[in-house]
Design a protein around this nucleic acid. Sequence first.
DNA 1: CCAGTAATTGACCCGTCGGTCATTAGCAGG
DNA 2: CCTGCTAATGACCGACGGGTCAATTACTGG
Lengths: 213, 213
Amino acid sequence: MTTDPKWRRRKTARPGEIEAAALEVFAERGFAAAKLEEIAERAGLSKAAIYVYYPNKTELFRAVVGARAAPDIETIAAILETADLPFAELARAMLARMAEAMSRPGLRSLARMVIAEGRNFPEIAQLWHDGVVARALAAMSAAIARAQARGEVRPGNPRLMALSLIGPMMLGALWIEVMVPAGGEPIDLTALAAEHFATVADGLLIKDEARAA
Amino acid sequence: MTTDPKWRRRKTARPGEIEAAALEVFAERGFAAAKLEEIAERAGLSKAAIYVYYPNKTELFRAVVGARAAPDIETIAAILETADLPFAELARAMLARMAEAMSRPGLRSLARMVIAEGRNFPEIAQLWHDGVVARALAAMSAAIARAQARGEVRPGNPRLMALSLIGPMMLGALWIEVMVPAGGEPIDLTALAAEHFATVADGLLIKDEARAA
DNA sequence: CCAGTAATTGACCCGTCGGTCATTAGCAGG
DNA sequence: CCTGCTAATGACCGACGGGTCAATTACTGG
């Protein structure tokens, strides 16, 4: 009988598998409480083998968080730069896309991790700030400013308006991450996006002018 | 010469001091990375003395998070239950109060901690859910539902509307906690509250009816 | 002033986990 | 087939930090 080898040499495949496992464990336990042994186990190799690919735990963390930062953001930025769609359509599409992105656990738990570990890893926070959040915010502010120039959006600070737009989606995502496991009522992010879009478009209040009609 | 004693017996004063120091350290480092030695140092006693008042680190954490949960929320809930103020005034006052509460680091960093450690401490998340977040959300949903019944607010899911209201303030608070230390542009929460109120009241879009005037 | 009590401490213990290293074993090239 | 390279391992180390305990010292009541 040809016995199965105890392990395989798979130099190119390893890093991806390690990072995937690490993302899981870091997301579940947080940086400090995550054990390399557990990451190794889930990645299907030994703890020592991790050190072939990453010099230490911190660097592995950096690789995990840094790698998966950009992709979803690009899509959102692309939507916002679709110039000359009416702002209402832009906003609706953006909120829908964000609901979608935050419905999958990947980006969502990553966001929670950045919030959780940002203080202890200033460079991680900076990486996300520069590469993800600030860019998204800037793209959105720019879109709002353009819409203001076209007379579609009322005057006001575009940056603060951008926060008004994305705040509820972030809160929804964090609710799912933190409160639902603790017994909180689930939230349908798509429904939230729709409801919030209605509010952003027309406000919550019923206008007096409506009575005049 | 009457020599100063090396230490004092201050049984009643200790718990408060320990919890204050613990809040600081937990907020700075996170639960796992917080060292009891450092908490002891800042509280002005020895590590061993902490164990007179708390059986272990986890229990201390529980005490810290549990204790400071309620007070600010009560104020906000009280505002929302001021029945029969016009909803617009209710919302404006609530947002202003929230901006104020989140401008101080206490509640703000506590919120970040709950997000950070909620997964590892389900009971903490549950404590906050039951005692703080769910109650605030319920009070707000109720206020919105009442306003809908009076015809002040458009139809729609009150719970999702409540998330629309508070989302941006939470995001602002987290921005200050996480991104500003990493070089992010600061945010004036009071200005954010005002801008967001304007959006919630009337929306971002300039109405066509306005042209008719 | 003098016990007796209990708050407080410093030194210690020990489990855990990040990180290292000599050794093993898969595999490619001749 | 076998030989050399190196991916991969298991056993180990050392530091760090949570938690304990006997000894110490501030008080309190008589």
